[in-house]
Amino acid sequence: MTEAALLDPVEHDETATAQAVVAARDVSLVFDAEGGRVTALAGVDLSIMPGDFVSLIGPSGCGKTTLLRAIADLERPSSGSLLVNGMSPEDARKRRSYGYVFQAPALYPWRNVARNVMLPLEIMGLARAERRVRVARYLALVGLGEFARKFPWQLSGGMQQRVSIARALAFEPKLLLMDEPFGALDEITRDGLNLHLHELWRRTGMTAVFVTHSIPEAVFLSTRIVVMSARPGRVVDIIDNDLPATRDLDLRETPEFLAVAHRVREALRAGHSYD
């Protein structure tokens, strides 16, 4: 699929829209704030296909988090059409179609690590035995099997965020939505988690939408990078990332990596000079 097809709704392939995990057409979202109306999203077109790892990147206020929240039915678009798995975001949410990882771990302090991961499984009514299997599996997957009985506040920030990822994975959604999950962490922890997340995504084959303001993070993780700009929030460019599917941290020193990063930076700059 070409960039033009992605950007231009007229050339949107009907079958592609039907298959798309996320299909946004001319989505706008306006907030009623105290100082007047704020256009958080203006005319966003975007298709995310199964197995994609899509990063939304842009300056603060560009609506990347708002777009993610709209996909998750945590915000409602003012106009345009937004489909998740071919249905409205609300229906998708009610079918528990996605896992959401927030900026903060949002772990419940009164539940230990295992019971935090179990939370969605309890709500969704999984059998007790199955819950325990899942918790063990996904805690092991994020490398925290030994910490099941610890309480969240006894863990480091990076470990807490890994628990919240395990919690999002535990009910095995096909779509993982992440809102700057590593934004509050130090760079070394962040590198480790990026590698970890990349491995997870490759092994599960799930679709991921990832909000970030870090160019290296976006380039390292994504198959496609959606560059957004602020006031009003809109998509200025969608960059396909052709780097090899299997990635390690050394990749970030290669010219190919730097070339993609350069393109992202240029797009960000173009979007910036626009206003």
Binding site: L74, K94, L119
Partner: peptide, 26 residues
């Protein structure tokens, strides 16, 4: 908190479940 509530919403948890699992303990 808002994030914790959004989490419950993302699970399509209703009023009762949110009350029982999140708001009352908090």
């Amino acid at each position: 908190g808002a994030i914790e509530r959004d989490l419950m919403r993302s699970y399509a948890a209703g009023y009762g479940v949110t009350l029982l699992k999140l708001r009352l303990p908090a």
